[in-house]
Design a binder for these strands. Structure first.
Lengths: 340, 340
DNA sequence: CTGAAAGCGCTTACAG
DNA sequence: CTGAAAGCGCTTACAG
């Protein structure tokens, strides 16, 4: 690859002049500018990124650290981030931490915290202007306590101290919307298959559910709430437990689509029809939810929007614009299909 | 962030000595080494990546250019690549080109070719040691004709001139395996819903199919091959056309899972049961294939293995090791479920 | 074993 | 409008 020096020699001007042209400075005559530009075109010269950012301070690059690109939510989140960032003339350097395959999904372990910090250090050594962290699910993040020197924002998870902007879904509101829909469809006795106790998603969704029930003057039966561990298998088992306890409900609201599929499995096994004998609702709107028989009514997570909003906030921080709040929540959208 | 110079001052040695320690050179006394290492630890010093690679020539970094991270295949491919690369002490810089959302999935357009070349240039300006290109599907790649200066390898697609290593699935063999399985299950008259005519996948799979049929002394009925355009909707329509032409078959082999879902849709609509009235087979083993009712028999693409193998080949090229062939194919694995 | 010096490819005051 | 020079933070012969 040709260097600035060689290019300047070819153009018969100083490297300073070429550099000025490259950087759009106005102190160059049209004549030389045209000549140089032409030769740049011909030679296909590209400035050395290393040298450039070693000298200049701003890189116009943001570091994108991802819990796990394999999480169903990550690609769309990334899409939203890049769409905005590219538009604004920013480059992005992506790193995936492989939370699932390499760290068995334990985001709270000290080992993982170290992996995140290492990744941040790496980004820092590349001199990114800011860092965007994309979580695989809504865990509580405490990695970023110390000042790291560049702005950072979190997408799709919570930050413990609320010191760093974190853009996530509005679990409370979303669950409220779904529950209202279920009630409108005539269901008065609704069972819940949740994820894990004390999970952030879990708590907020339960509260949203209760609010909707109360508003409709319906009683919520705490014994009809069963944890399903977020998996298909877990949903299946939870459904079994539910039926052992009671059959006094007409609808099962699952806190994700995978567990809803487990409920389908159980229902079919018992000779019952989901969507007919029992209404079933999910959450996430994963691809598979539309392939269930019958297709699942669920909540769509506004992934791209969350990604985009995170990028907007990050650039604001980078440019020193004030942010109103670090706690940004975006509600989900109801997707009506045939299971309710 | 502290610099080498400041660090050296703190240690009361020259920057050269610290640099030697950092780079594991053996020409340093244990005493100073210990002292310096301790201070490095305390200060949390990190070498500036830019400066280092501006000076040294090797970066131990590979550039990973991805057609579209949103393709169902990409995350697993990336996983395989990273697993090997991290193990070998390489860093990775990822870029996704957004083939789907930004370029409407036209990998053969000149605009897209330009986007790829720009991305390569960017990687080059970061001085990566090599480039790994991950395709979203098996299009024919012609972007890399000119010598680009560093080794490059392609994962999950073909390279026109076979000058660059390309690791992809063995469509012929995989289709052969599936067809043999279908025949073993007693099917003698098999309809095909393919993708698009003249597609690479298409041709090879058709040949694999024909080979298996011939080996079993079965006749292949060309009119029972219907293109479905790779989508659910397309599969649905193709299935309708098939039935209009003939009902003289017992099994429908779809060249991807999405189209198989479309076949399910059609069958259900006609009051027929997939897996019972007609056997249905897919290809890809996407997540949704296991959520169909009944779960779909399909071919699993060895995505991680392809990714890993690509990384192996790339490092060989970087290290100057000879490669046997540029045309590497890996067969898929049969996943038996309930639809056949 | 240690350090002074050159140089990687750029940008940025500054002088003319 | 143009260019000489310093310097970004490192690594690498080389001299001692």
């Amino acid at each position: 690859m040709i260097t600035l020096k060689e290019l300047a020699a070819k153009c018969e001007v100083s490297i300073a002049t070429v550099s000025n042209i490259l950087n759009g400075k106005s102190n160059v005559s049209q004549a030389t500018k045209q000549r140089v530009l032409k030769i740049i075109e011909e030679t296909g010269y590209k400035p050395n990124f290393m040298a450039r950012t070693l000298r200049a301070r701003k890189t116009n690059t943001v570091g994108l650290i991802i819990d796990d690109i394999g999480a169903f939510s990550s690609p769309d989140l990334v899409e939203g981030v890049l769409d905005y960032l590219e538009n604004q003339g920013y480059k992005t350097i992506i790193e995936t931490l492989r939370l699932y395959s390499k760290w068995q999904n334990s985001p709270d372990s000290p080992e993982y915290a170290k992996a995140v910090r290492d990744s941040v250090d790496e980004m820092l050594s590349i001199k990114v202007d800011g860092i965007l962290f994309i979580a695989a699910h809504a865990h509580d993040i405490e990695y970023f306590t110390e000042e790291i020197g560049v702005p950072i924002v979190i997408a799709y998870a919570y930050e413990t101290d609320n010191k760093i902007p974190a853009i996530k879904i509005d679990d409370f509101e979303s669950s409220y919307i779904m529950t209202k829909h279920l009630i409108e469809k005539g269901h008065k006795k609704i069972a819940i298959i949740g994820g894990a106790k004390n999970d952030k998603h879990e708590r907020d969704r339960l509260e949203g559910f209760e609010k909707a029930m109360k508003e409709a003057a319906l009683t919520v039966n705490k014994s009809l709430v069963e944890p399903g561990g977020w998996s298909r298998e877990g949903g299946y088992k939870a459904c079994g437990k539910l039926f052992k306890k009671s059959t006094d409900f007409t609808c099962i609201f699952c806190f994700n689509d995978l567990m809803a599929a487990g409920v389908y499995d159980y229902l079919y096994e018992q000779g019952k029809l989901p969507g007919k004998d029992y209404a079933v609702a999910g959450f996430d709107n994963r691809e598979m939810s539309d392939y269930l028989t019958p297709p699942l009514t669920t909540m769509e997570i506004p992934l791209e929007e969350i990604g985009r909003e995170s990028a907007v906030v990050l650039l604001k921080k980078i440019n020193g614009t004030k942010i109103d709040t670090n706690d940004i929540k975006i509600p989900c959208r109801l997707i009506q299909r045939k299971s309710v």
